[in-house]
Amino acid sequence: MAEPRGTLDIRGLSARYGPVTALDAVDITASPGRVTAVLGANGAGKTTLLRTISGLVKGADGSVLLGGRDLTGASAETIARAGIAHVPEGRGVITELTVEENLRLGELLGTARRGKGGREHRLDTVYEMFPALEQRRRREANSLSGGERQMLVIGRALLSAPEVLLLDEPSLGLAPRIVAQLFALIRDLVDREGITVLLVEQNARSALSIADTGFVLNLGRVVAAADAASLAGDADLRHAYLGF
């Protein structure tokens, strides 16, 4: 298949928790150098989508392809090594480890992947990007604030030299000013590094402001898919699903 590197292709993805259908035949494509937003209300299936892509939810139907490589049903470890970095809901800081140890875990994955031609990232560049982390590098990650934790997990994901970055509600619990900085940073990263970002957000307005395309999920189905500007401009859609 002639898919370009870093294209994430999701086809007919369905997932169930017992009797609950959380994803119902979802088709989504996310391309390199673009931010693809996935929006929807609580319980729409956004987290399930990301967890299925990264191999944490098992037994789904449909397929997940990365640059044409079929990752359906692979283990979470394999998918991470293939270049999909998932920053989970609630961030996934390992609080018992120090800040630097958290980062080193990302770096280890990056080193393991580099043989496969991933971009090189070093601890220093992350510290340059987030000076606050450098000051706290020897502290337990436990002691970080919400914003610092978000920097930590994004830095950690970048160190793993990913082709695709999955972000699950990165704005949750952050002050509006920090959210704005964070989203600017994400946009900047995508423009500079050309990675693929799949951004799950409740905060639809902010997400659409940096996204290129968007998908709206409701009860596990894709109910709208368009470029970000037209989604943001669709008043009915905004009222029905996005709440702004």
Binding site: A76, A80, L105
Partner: peptide, 18 residues
Amino acid sequence: LRMRASAFSQEVSRLLGV
């Protein structure tokens, strides 16, 4: 480091390719 990470948080460790 990988062993400690796995002990503290299996899921996050998996996502980091451990």
